[in-house]
Design a binder for these strands. Structure first.
Lengths: 190, 190
DNA sequence: CGCCGAGTTGAACTGAATCAAGAAACGTGG
DNA sequence: CCACGTTTCTTGATTCAGTTCAACTCGGCG
């Protein structure tokens, strides 16, 4: 897959972008072909990068008292970055790593800001991504408040049926805020 | 407080806006002086409004199996809206109501979109609000996952010391995802 | 073959919910 | 201004979902 193809895919999956903007994106982005468990962002680091996943998957996680806790999963056609660092310019509380071998498009914050000033369509795309993310976080909060471990697991499966084959269970458990023991029991009770 | 004063306050609290943009905002916004428990958005309604709180406070809540559960609090110098309805144009899952007597500035979505196209500074302001909200939601998720009822309560007090005097405890409890009994015990154990 | 990490299963423990009953605070009308 | 009913808050006893700790199984792979 070429950069041009990937950017057309973004434009298709989110909002149409003018050709000039696409050309700028091609000029200012970087294509990364990486293996699984490739570290993209390290905790404590100031990261001013955002990654579009053309193929593969990634996760953000943190080490909470030494325990690896997944915070976010991203798959093909989604973006991933340390939002704290990228937007608020503080050290990232997360690590970000690929889960599967992946093809990524990397964008720098200053380029993003520049393109947003230059192309209203790009600015709208940025806003759309922010809003989508906001709504996802909101649903997640609702799930955490109102659902049992089992309900959260079943919902995750319903939303992303392929997740069970692509993500190690240990990551799913920590993402759902439950222990691997509980997840194991749920999967068998079923 | 006049509309002009309020809009200057927004500009000051978030990002500076050019005079022309401020003039447009004055022309296209609506000032509301309302009492406490005034309903701003009703569940199931398509709401295309966002409210800036110049004075007072408001909350978003939902009726989950008939129980009133607070989802969000907003105070002076903050914005509140049904993000689902405003951004995704779906029926609002929330009610929104004032808690205290409040002075509000109401903006329509189509005006917001118009101003964002017209003034890059306004577009940046919009983005800043989205990002701030995103980060708040993220912290809230972390709190829900890692903190005990007591820690969540103490953190809420630390972040907003005046909340105890301004918000009924029953709303605080449901916001924290705990029962009023548990909150009562926490407040006394202390 | 034997080790090793990942997954499963069991038993005891725990934080918070639920259920229930009092105590305080509040306001409304006599 | 007091009496009464209503709502809000507190306190206690019980229950429950999920954690923790621990032992055991299984499927690779050197």
């Amino acid at each position: 897959m070429t950069k041009a193809e990937i950017i057309h895919a973004i434009s298709k999956h989110y909002l149409p972008l003018p050709d000039a903007c696409i050309a700028d994106l091609i000029a200012h982005s970087k294509l990364l072909e990486v293996g699984k468990q490739t570290e993209l962002v390290r905790e404590g680091q100031y990261s001013d990068k955002v990654f579009y996943i053309a193929r593969g998957s990634a996760r953000a996680y943190l080490l909470k008292d030494g325990r690896d806790v997944s915070d976010w999963f991203a798959f093909e056609n989604e973006f991933v970055s340390s939002i704290n660092s990228f937007f608020a310019n503080v050290p990232s509380p997360h690590f970000i790593e690929t889960i599967e071998p992946s093809l990524l498009l990397e964008l720098q914050r200053d380029k993003v800001l520049e393109l947003a000033e230059k192309y209203p369509a790009f600015s709208r795309l940025e806003k759309k991504i922010l809003v989508d993310t906001l709504l996802k976080l909101q649903y997640r909060i609702a799930a955490m408040q109102f659902e049992t471990a089992q309900q959260k697991y079943l919902r995750l499966l319903a939303v992303r049926p392929d997740i069970a084959d692509r993500i190690p269970v240990t990551h799913m458990a920590s993402y759902l805020g439950i222990t691997i023991e509980t997840l194991s029991r749920i999967r068998h009770a079923k």
